[in-house]
């Protein structure tokens, strides 16, 4: 069982993923964008952060960079519905910046559960 911070601006996505993760036995806290996510992590220091990339206010790449600064060993799973927007390949970039795993949306529930298990095991 791990404490997981889930950052996504889409409430339906958050609801679905929270269901998946809670059924796998994890405790899930939700943030609606990167800004809120950072504040929640600063106060909550969750075990794993699952974050979307394309979000309002503070988008995912920036969020990952700041999270990494706050906690160099933090396990981050980045997910995105668009591998690329404009000229930037966000998932590839997220991986470079320190996301332990990247998952392209949409995915089957077990893909996320496995990803979380994997990063937890690696720790």
């Amino acid at each position: 069982m791990a404490r997981i911070l889930l950052i996504d601006d889409d409430s339906t996505v958050r609801y679905a993923l929270k269901q998946v993760l809670e059924r796998a036995g994890h405790q899930v806290e939700e943030a609606t964008d990167g800004q809120i996510g950072l504040q929640m992590y600063a106060s909550g220091r969750q075990d794993v952060v699952v974050t979307d990339i394309i979000m309002p206010n503070k988008e995912g790449i920036e969020t990952i960079i700041e999270l990494r600064r706050m906690a160099p060993d933090l396990r981050i799973i980045a997910m995105s519905g668009g591998g690329r927007t404009g000229n930037r390949d966000f998932l590839a970039m997220a991986e470079k910046l320190g996301a332990a795993r990247i998952i392209a949306k949409p995915f089957r529930p077990r893909e996320l559960v496995e990803a979380v298990d994997t990063v937890l095991k690696a720790a």
């Binding site: 889409d10 339906t12 996505v13 609801y15 679905a16 993923l17 269901q19 998946v20 059924r23 394309i54 995105s80 519905g81 668009g82 690329r84 927007t85 392209a104 949306k105 949409p106 995915f107 089957r108 529930p109 996320l112």
Partner: peptide
């Protein structure tokens, strides 16, 4: 197509996960 794909993926995610659940 990029924007459309992004939004579709986001929509497909709950469809797939919630249906499976």
């Amino acid at each position: 197509a990029g924007g459309l794909g992004h939004d579709l993926n986001n929509m497909l995610l709950p469809v797939m996960t919630l249906t499976e659940l």
